[in-house]
């Protein structure tokens, strides 16, 4: 390793996935590993915070070991540690943050708190063909639905967000109504594929008024009421729901792009894995001479790569943090971040 190469270890443990990434200033992402707790929580119909924390504490160190081994480096080569400090589940955040801080303290290297959503927002920049600032970001997951004006790293203005359920949450809840288990978002998308024509006209919530906020809870209720009336039409309901939710996202993205005069849209978070969403947004962007960027499929969900990457940016810009307090911020607005 050259003397000036920086190697950032990233640790993600904000919800139900333990993720580790290692980012090199000279070679880019050199390793990443993930353990998903989906099976642990499936029986409970949702994430159980205490079970999530109990699992994270068993996974972090083994995943770091695998990642170091994959990258063919030693822990002593690491020059900085980044950890998700929020937003997320307090107990889960604490595990990754405590391990990160104790490693950085022990090795005498800097550490940095990373905002989980900044990780998602920057994830498409890990790709070779990556977007340039400024852009509009659509962050869509089980916990968030957000449109953000991104002028640069850390320079964020939230343009709109969900007033109730996040879009991924609405997917999961609707899937549950249709008997698809938990987490059912991807299963709902699969079921929707069986339906070639759209039978029901579901509402496009909050698109008939100005603004960029979202609301998905009514759409979920609409799906439930339709299912009660016609329970035999599961795939039609799945398709109609998916189309309504994604068209709603598309309408707001278009509105945000046109209001900003940017020509780049970045879409990230778990729901950005949805292929119908990608097709719909690509088509819309084409019409208005814009372009959409997405992370690779495996980086749509929570992961350590994006935390290592976002941490790398912040470590490069920041004085060494000599404060050894383990800080978590379960509620943390993107707008509270400082630009670098």
């Amino acid at each position: 390793m050259g003397h000036k190469v920086s190697l950032t270890l990233g640790i993600e443990s904000s919800c139900d996935e333990t993720g580790i990434g290692i980012y090199s200033s000279s070679e880019g992402l050199i390793a990443h590993n993930l353990f998903s707790q989906v099976k642990i929580h499936a029986d409970y119909g949702g994430v159980v915070p205490e079970l999530a924390s109990r699992d994270h504490i068993q996974r972090v160190i083994p995943l770091i070991k695998s990642s170091l081994s994959d990258a063919k480096i030693n822990l002593s080569d690491i020059t900085g540690v980044a950890h998700t400090a929020g937003p997320g589940l307090a107990g889960a955040l604490l595990v990754g943050s405590a391990i990160a801080k104790s490693i950085s303290w022990s090795l005498g290297i800097p550490s940095v708190e990373v905002h989980h959503m900044e990780g998602h927002l920057l994830a498409p920049l890990l790709e070779e063909d990556c977007p340039e600032f400024p852009f509009i970001a659509l962050l869509v997951s089980g916990g968030h639905t957000m449109l953000v004006d991104v002028k640069g790293v850390g320079d964020y203005t939230i343009l709109g967000e969900s007033l109730d359920d996040a879009v991924g949450e609405a997917f999961d809840k609707t899937a549950k109504i249709l008997g698809l288990g938990y987490p059912g978002g991807p299963a709902l998308a699969e079921l929707a594929k069986q339906c070639k024509t759209i039978k029901y006209k579901f509402p496009r919530p909050m698109t008939d008024r100005p603004g960029l906020d979202f609301s998905f809870s009514g759409l979920k209720t609409y799906a439930r009421n339709t299912f009660i009336k016609e329970p035999q039409n599961r795939s039609d309901i799945a398709k109609s729901f998916e189309v309504a939710a994604i068209q709603t996202l598309m309408i707001k993205c278009r509105r945000a792009l046109e209001g900003s005069e940017y020509s780049t849209l970045v879409v990230s978070g778990g729901v950005s894995a949805n292929l119908y969403l990608r097709d719909t947004l690509d088509e819309m962007c084409k019409k208005i001479n814009a372009r959409a960027f997405y992370p690779r499929q495996e980086f749509c969900t929570d992961n350590g790569a994006m935390i290592a990457f976002a941490g790398h940016y912040r470590l490069m810009s920041k004085k060494i943090n000599s404060d050894h307090k383990i800080v978590i911020k379960p509620r943390w607005s993107l707008e509270d971040l400082s630009a670098i």
């Binding site: 504490i57 972090v60 770091i64 604490l94 104790s102 383990i326």
Partner: peptide
């Protein structure tokens, strides 16, 4: 306390692993 117990263990994991 669950959180306290994990805090203790997590910090020890980090120190032990580092060296």
């Amino acid at each position: 306390s669950f959180t306290g117990v994990r805090m203790c263990t997590a910090v020890v994991q980090g120190i032990s692993f580092a060296h």
